[in-house]
Design a protein around this nucleic acid. Structure first.
Lengths: 191, 191
DNA sequence: TGAACTATGCTTAGTTT
DNA sequence: GAAACTAAGCATAGTTC
């Protein structure tokens, strides 16, 4: 063997992983501990840097609960839960919940598509990205359609309706319906 | 000027910042947008990778609320709020809240001390770290004392008492008081 | 068992468009 | 003034002790 091959590095360093459930019980627990710490640190930094109020609750697979809150978890959660149509029963809360539910799946699709796009870009030969004979190109296009459908439905439809419902329900008087179309993206603000 | 000095880089890239309130209104808003996105992404990854249940609520300085939740924010928040002594009124909830309140400050102290320690390490000459004549060493030592005091109070005192109170209040039958001392660290699990 | 380490992927502050 | 870009700081997967 060569000298270069013989001198293995002490560690490969961080390797890229897919964002999917870690199968190994042990590895999952270790990852949970590390990422939970990082997650709470991010929460802390966000609240300090931006003077934002942040609450985070995490339930481990084993059922233990961990939390972070500034100013306090209970305070923020109570305020949040009392926000959307708690007394009028307009059903907007379920819409918002649905949006939140779709967030992970949606972002996963965006990331997956972006990754596939980059991979295709890296190994592309002479043929066009849209060439129907290019396997990678076809898959990317299919994903793009599915993604676009979901985005359109979410942005133009459900989100706008939810936004309108919340506006009507709470009669929040911001700017009097001027400039731009409904701003919502993935994180819909609950007014 | 030299040729090397004349060829400025197109960007300095990311620069280190202190974790403290950003004074500039505009910069704070931009930072909020960026970090909020990163924060929710971390939440999503944590829930997917580790099969954990994660809820996060963020109030912007302007008062808008953003949320992420898997499976759903309301579900998790309700479950969390119903956890600690909701009916018996033991007061343990306030203890837990106090722990959460101290988290940010505590972690800030840890980070500050670690940073100072590393800085001292980098520029240390021949004198010992504990040398009372070394300015940096003295400051580090002072911080260490304050930190240690807080840690001892938190871990050995409040946290253990909170843990015991929660245990008694909820009569959770885990292992029958075997192996190790109270495990709590910064994030106290709410049983 | 877990704390520490290493190297690399990821995040993001500052800049430009 | 939002989006893209650049590069440096930071988080963390895999490994070692």
């Amino acid at each position: 063997m060569t000298a270069a091959a013989a001198r293995r590095r002490p560690s490969l360093g961080r390797q890229k992983i897919e964002i999917r459930r870690i199968e190994s019980e042990e590895a999952r627990q270790v990852c949970f501990s590390k990422r939970r710490a990082g997650f709470f640190k991010k929460a802390s930094e966000l609240s300090i840097l931006c003077s934002a109020e942040v609450a985070a609750v995490v339930f481990s697979p084993a059922g233990k609960a961990y939390s972070f809150g500034h100013p306090s978890v209970e305070c923020l959660l109570d305020r949040f839960l009392s926000l959307p149509a708690t007394g009028s029963g307009t059903g907007s809360a379920s819409v918002v919940g649905e949006l939140n539910r779709q967030y992970g799946e949606l972002r996963a699709m965006v990331d997956a598509h972006k990754a596939r796009r980059e991979r295709a870009e890296k190994q592309r030969t002479a043929r066009s990205w849209m060439d129907p004979e290019a396997e990678v190109g076809r898959m990317a296009a299919e994903e793009l359609v599915a993604l676009g459908t979901k985005l359109v439905a979410l942005q133009g439809g459900v989100a706008a309706r939810a936004d309108q419902m919340l506006r009507d329900a709470l009669l929040v008087g911001r700017r009097p319906t001027t400039t731009r179309a409904p701003p919502p993206f993935f994180h819909l603000p609950h007014f």
